[in-house]
């Protein structure tokens, strides 16, 4: 009996905490369907008094608005997907070779890669800016994709997986006359799919959500990402238009929350595997 009261109390407490975590998101969605005037008039309406989709049509479709919100969304998704594919593929190749093949200088390469995980990124972002500037590649997709591919996190994560991967499958394929590349693509990669999803979700979230780097490395309205674009709108023409701002933040948030909910299990696996072991 006492235990039951305790459980009810804990569930109640957890629910109140859950409201604190979810209410700001609900308020964001709710505001995005209010007119700017209703939003700013300071009510406590958790649902709009007058439901309107004008914030969405205005931010996405209006000719009057001279910023390309849909292009920002495209840029974020394109950079996120392309960067993620590159990261997963090159990290998997490197990690597999370091775990299993006779790579020269293997004993130096792996510690060198992993030790860079401890370097604060603040050291690299100004020289990276200069490198892209020298190459004339600022404000292009290159800045939105390539800097993320150098991170050693994925090599570390996949290395741990390949090291504990049973050798028998590779040996059987080797006896069948498969070469290294065939073994890698036909035997190893298919069995590494779950861990590659983990890395993929991590990478996509990192690229899609990044803020400071795309803010300094892009400058034209066409090359902004959604996360930098909305920040510029907040400081510019939407400064107190909270209905429209919340429509923009909702547009930016929905895809990443969907991906998060789908990939949550993989994400948690990645956090616990690299964090602790």
């Amino acid at each position: 009996m006492q235990n039951k009261t305790k459980t009810i109390f804990l569930v109640l407490l957890a629910s109140i905490v859950a409201i604190i975590f979810l209410a700001p998101l609900f308020w964001m969605f709710s505001t995005s369907f209010k007119s700017d005037i209703e939003a700013i008039s300071g009510g406590l309406n958790w649902l709009p008094q007058e439901f309107t989709t004008e914030n969405y049509t205005y931010t996405l479709l209006s000719q009057g608005l001279n910023v390309p919100v849909l292009k920002w969304m495209f840029n974020s998704l394109f950079a996120g997907i392309t960067g993620t594919l590159i990261i997963v593929f090159i990290d998997a190749m490197a990690a597999y070779a370091l775990a299993r093949l006779d790579v020269p200088f293997k004993k130096i390469l792996l510690p060198m890669f992993i030790s860079t995980l401890m370097i604060p990124w603040v050291i690299t972002f100004l020289p990276l800016y200069m490198q892209f500037s020298n190459a004339g590649l600022l404000d292009t997709y290159a800045v939105l994709i390539f800097p993320y591919t150098a991170n050693a996190f994925g090599v570390f994560l996949l290395y741990q997986f390949f090291r504990s991967f049973p050798k028998e499958l590779e040996e059987a394929a080797h006896l069948d006359g498969a070469n290294k590349w065939q073994i890698f693509t036909k035997v190893v990669l298919p069995s590494a799919r779950p861990i590659m999803w983990t890395l993929g979700i991590f990478s996509f979230m990192t690229i899609y959500n990044d803020f400071l780097w795309p803010l300094v490395a892009t400058s034209s309205p066409e090359m902004r990402t959604i996360t930098t674009g909305i920040a510029i709108m907040q400081q510019g023409s939407f400064v107190s238009s909270y209905g429209k701002l919340m429509a923009l933040t909702s547009i930016a948030t929905v895809p990443i929350i969907i991906i998060f909910l789908i990939g949550q299990k993989q994400l948690i696996k990645g956090i616990t595997q690299t964090g602790i072991k």
Binding site: F89, I90, D91, M93, A94, Y96, A97, L98, L101, D102, V103, P104, L109, F113, T116, I119, I123, T124, L126, P127, L128, M130, Q131, F146, P147, T149, A150, N151, A152, V155, K180, W181, F184
Partner: peptide
């Protein structure tokens, strides 16, 4: 071991270009 090195090469190029070079270049700047 040459073909094995090719597996590491793509990541190694990214690692050098976008991590090691900036580290050195940052100190230079």
């Amino acid at each position: 071991s040459f073909t094995s090195a090719l597996f590491v090469l793509p990541y190694f190029i990214m690692f050098m270009t976008f991590l090691v070079v900036p580290l050195v270049y940052g100190v230079y700047i």
